[in-house]
Design a binder for these strands. Structure first.
Lengths: 134, 134
DNA sequence: TATCAAATTGAAAACGGATTTCAATTTCAG
DNA sequence: CTGAAATTGAAATCCGTTTTCAATTTGATA
C-alpha cells in the first residue's frame, strides 16, 4: 500500500505503517494520530482520502468518535458484507453465498435490493462467544 | 401509547401525537420539536426515553443529525432485523425465516452469533427500485 | 545545487449536533 | 390550597469533525 497523494511524506509513511501494523483494529483519529506520531489534522486528511479510495473502512460509531480500519483488499471489500463484533469490534469479512441467497430472497419476496457492501451485521465473533463474560 | 414519565404533560402528548401521525418517517430532532411545537430539549429528552424503551428507533446517520422513528410494535422490533432504503430512508421490518437461516449458517460456519435486532440491512426499497432515478 | 510553485503540515479556530444546566413553571398527592 | 417532585426550554457547554492559514516540505526544472 502506498500513498496516492502527489508527494510522499514522512507523516504518511508513519500513518500507513501504523495502520498496517494494527490491521485488525478499529482506530479512532486520536489513536491514529498519537500512535503514528503525526498531527490530528494530517491523520484526519489521510484517513478521509484513504476511506474515499476504499483502502480503509470508516465507522461512524453511534457513541463517541468514529473509527478507521485498514482494509487489506479494497476491491474485494467493495463487494461483500461485513460483520462486526459488538464485544470486541473485530471486523469479519463475509464473502459468502448464503448472504447472496438472502439477497435473492429479499429481492424476490420483499422487493428489496440489498446493497451488500454497505451492510454490516452485528453480533458476537467466535472468540467473544467462547470467551463469554471476559 | 402513553408516556412513562411520572407526569403527563401537554408537550408529551403533542410529541407522541406527532410521532404517531408520522409513523412511517424518520424525523430529526428539529423536525420533531418544530412539528410538535415543543422545545428541542423536551423533544430530545422524551425521544431518548422512548428510544431506551424501544418505542422509537434511533438512527445515528453518518452524516448530519440523528433521526427517530416511531415503532408500532416495540416487542416485535426488539427481535427482528430491519432494512433501510438508502434512497428514501424507509424502514422495512424483516421478520423473516431467511434471515434466521442466515443466522444459523453464520453460527455454524463462521462462528458468528448474529444479533438480529441490532442489524440493519441497506439497499433500495421496492418503490425506489421502481421509481429509479426519481 | 539553486529556485520556486505546488503540496503538505498542524496548531488553532470555526463549526455543528448532542447533552447538560438551571431558573421558572407545571403537575399532582395530600 | 400547599409544597415537593417533575418538567420545561433557552442558553450554555461539551466534544468530535472540519476548515483555515501561515510555515514548511517536496520535487520538477534549470
Amino acid at each position: 500500500m502506498t500513498s496516492r497523494g502527489a508527494y510522499s511524506t514522512k507523516q504518511r509513511s508513519l500513518l500507513i505503517d501504523y495502520l498496517e501494523a494494527h490491521a485488525g483494529q478499529r482506530l479512532t483519529l486520536d489513536e491514529l494520530a498519537v500512535g503514528a506520531g503525526v498531527g490530528r489534522t494530517t491523520a484526519y486528511r489521510l484517513m478521509e482520502m484513504l476511506a474515499s479510495q476504499g483502502a480503509v473502512h470508516k465507522y461512524q460509531a453511534a457513541e463517541g468518535s468514529c473509527c478507521y480500519q485498514f482494509v487489506a483488499d479494497p476491491k474485494a471489500c467493495a463487494q461483500h458484507a461485513h460483520m462486526v463484533c459488538t464485544a470486541c469490534s473485530e471486523l469479519v469479512h463475509l464473502d459468502c453465498g448464503e448472504v447472496r441467497q438472502l439477497a435473492r430472497h429479499l429481492l424476490a419476496e420483499h422487493g428489496f435490493a440489498l446493497d451488500e457492501k454497505r451492510t454490516v451485521l452485528y453480533g458476537l465473533c467466535a472468540d467473544c462467544l467462547k470467551g463469554d463474560g471476559a
